[in-house]
């Protein structure tokens, strides 16, 4: 396997290991990876945090899942259409193939995760950017903390049913975790990120 394939596989394994070993109700984990924008208009070598990989676990509580997908019918139709198109794109345009997963409700957290794949952040901007620039942990717990943070990504997360969002800076990017439950800050999670995502461990 190529080196990039290797990195991709291990990134996925590390994100999965992080969520599965944390033992709390994390809904997803994303690794925002740094890259360098050499075509910046200012001519600077600008650091950008873009999608590296993500692991979506989902909500275990079925009632919560139900509650988190109560978007209006038009919005649901839009989400299902996007999922159908993406499924067709990934499967090489095998249009017409019926797939039951295309007609299932797309929950708010699934949608938030999916939309995240299209996003990137300049260094210092947004939740991941701020975490990376200052090499610090941002832990927002409780819907009030998400909306009160003044950060658009956190506000969006709250709208899509998240109650906890965490960004932990690592060597080559930022690990973001989100949950539809309220999860208190723990050094255990930060230690896990450190051991999984920093090479000096």
């Amino acid at each position: 396997p190529s080196l990039s394939q290797f990195n991709e596989d291990t990134l996925q394994q590390r994100l999965q290991a992080l969520i599965e070993s944390a033992g709390e109700g994390w809904t997803y984990a994303i690794f925002w990876q740094i890259s360098h924008d050499f075509e910046s208009p200012t001519g600077d070598n600008t650091v950008v945090l873009g999608w590296g990989d993500g692991y979506y676990k989902g909500e275990e509580d079925k009632e919560k899942k139900k509650k988190s997908s109560n978007s209006n019918p038009a919005e649901q139709e839009h989400r299902k259409r996007v999922i159908r198109e993406l499924n067709s794109l990934i499967s090489g345009g095998g249009g017409g193939v019926s797939d039951e997963s295309n007609d299932e409700e797309v929950t708010d957290t699934e949608w938030f995760f999916l939309v995240s794949m299209t996003q990137s952040f300049a260094n210092g901007v947004g939740l991941p950017g701020e975490s990376f620039l200052n090499s610090r942990v941002i832990w927002l717990s409780g819907s009030g903390a998400l909306t009160g943070s003044g950060c658009e990504r956190a506000s969006q997360g709250q709208i899509y049913g998240l109650q906890t969002m965490v960004c932990i800076a690592a060597e080559n990017g930022v690990v973001e975790l989100g949950s539809s439950e309220v999860i208190s800050q723990s050094s255990d999670l930060m230690d896990k990120v450190n051991s999984l995502f920093n090479s000096n461990n």
């Binding site: 991709e8 999608w51 999922i83 794949m117």
Partner: peptide
């Protein structure tokens, strides 16, 4: 940056595949 869209495509394929698995086991 060519690696970025590739990473997204792989993530997307994995997400859709796991979604199917979740829905089938529900």
């Amino acid at each position: 940056i060519p690696s970025v869209p590739q990473a997204r495509k792989a993530s997307l394929a994995r997400f859709l595949e796991k979604r199917k698995e979740r829905l089938m086991s529900a």
